[in-house]
């Protein structure tokens, strides 16, 4: 770990001010950044602790929910509004990491966590994300956990968050504040696909701080869930995960649907093609399968992760089937 300074921000404005120092980084719960610093993959010169900033989880007048970026994962997962109105979010958080890590990790930090690609983690390996221009050793290496959608010749890493997959499905809005002021953007717009610059992972400008995530009012979110498939039964990153919300009309057709995938891409993957295929159609296994196929038509598996295409297809169908209940 490189020598560095530390300051605790008293409020958002102070945080943004402190983050103006050379090599400064915001520090949440530290569950990812401290590990990466120890690996010398991250070498900040100054840490700005933002865990003392907004962490409230507040019901909004319009039926939505506002969650301060410093809210701990456990606090979000156990919050009654989340459990009852956005269960997919609660389930996604609970499927991630361990009890201890969920007690430490913040919402903002979760959004900013970095890939688990083992070539990214090994400074002896070529990695365009860690060292732009160094090449990608994962493409022809152990790529079982890597991307099948949206990858580039420069990078095949996946985003490791569970929480973000649920947020992507639930139309979450990210509120940020920076030297140039405050703005908000859709969660699905926050993370980038790798393209030629996998080292740039989000659209945040330097110094911009995630201050809150807003879940808009979404009736069908009460009927949402999250399923994670991994190599052991707990405490492992997703091979594939699916967050979904489904509304089936009385006539058995799909009124509305939200679907997002984890473990497939450089960002949480909102499955809009599948959603489009589903809307208005029958809530049947065959239409779920067709929707999955529609989303995965562009899947480009690598040497070891071809199974993810089939696994994603099956998991999508199973999750939608579960949400549809007897209707399917």
């Amino acid at each position: 770990m490189t020598p560095l300074s530390f300051a605790r921000a008293a409020d958002t404005a102070a945080a943004i001010g402190l983050a103006g120092a050379p090599g400064a980084r915001y520090l949440g719960g530290g569950t990812n950044l401290v590990d990466l610093m120890r690996e010398t993959i991250e070498r900040p010169q100054a840490l700005v602790d933002v865990t003392g900033l907004g962490s409230a989880i507040e019901d909004q007048a319009d039926g939505g929910l506002m969650i301060g970026a410093a809210a701990r994962n456990t606090a979000i997962a156990e919050h009654r509004s989340v459990r009852t109105r956005y269960p997919a979010l609660s389930r996604a958080i609970l499927a991630g990491a361990s009890g201890q890590i969920r007690n430490m990790a913040t919402l903002g930090g979760n959004l900013m966590q970095r890939t688990r690609c083992t070539y990214f983690y090994d400074d002896a390996a070529g990695c365009n994300k860690r060292a732009p221009g160094a090449g990608c050793d994962a493409i022809d290496g152990f790529n079982r956990i890597h991307a099948i959608l949206g990858a580039s010749p420069a990078c095949v890493a996946t985003h490791p968050s569970d929480l973000c997959v649920a947020l992507a499905a639930l139309d979450a809005i990210v509120h940020v504040e920076g030297p140039a002021g405050a703005r908000s953007l859709e969660l699905v717009e926050l993370h980038r696909l790798p393209g030629g610059r996998p080292d740039i992972e989000t659209v945040l400008a330097p110094g911009e701080l995630i201050t809150a995530v807003e879940l808009p009012a979404l009736a069908l979110a009460a009927r949402s869930t999250y399923r994670k498939v991994r190599d052991r039964s707990s405490y492992a990153f997703a091979l594939i995960s699916v967050a979904a919300a489904l509304e089936v009309a009385e006539d058995g057709t799909i009124g509305d649907v939200r679907l997002a995938l984890g473990g497939v891409a450089h960002k949480p993957w909102r499955a809009r093609m599948a959603e489009a295929a589903l809307r208005g159609g029958p809530a049947t296994r065959s239409s779920f399968l067709a929707a999955a196929e529609a989303e995965l038509v562009d899947a480009a598996p690598l040497s070891h992760n071809g199974f993810k295409v089939e696994l994603a297809r099956r998991t999508i169908v199973a999750v939608l089937g579960e949400l549809a209940g007897d209707a399917a």
Binding site: F6, R8, G30, N103
Partner: peptide, 12 residues
């Protein structure tokens, strides 16, 4: 609350 002390910078 249970946490992991290895990922906790003492300063925090």
């Amino acid at each position: 609350e249970r946490i992991l002390s290895c990922l906790a910078l003492a300063a925090q």
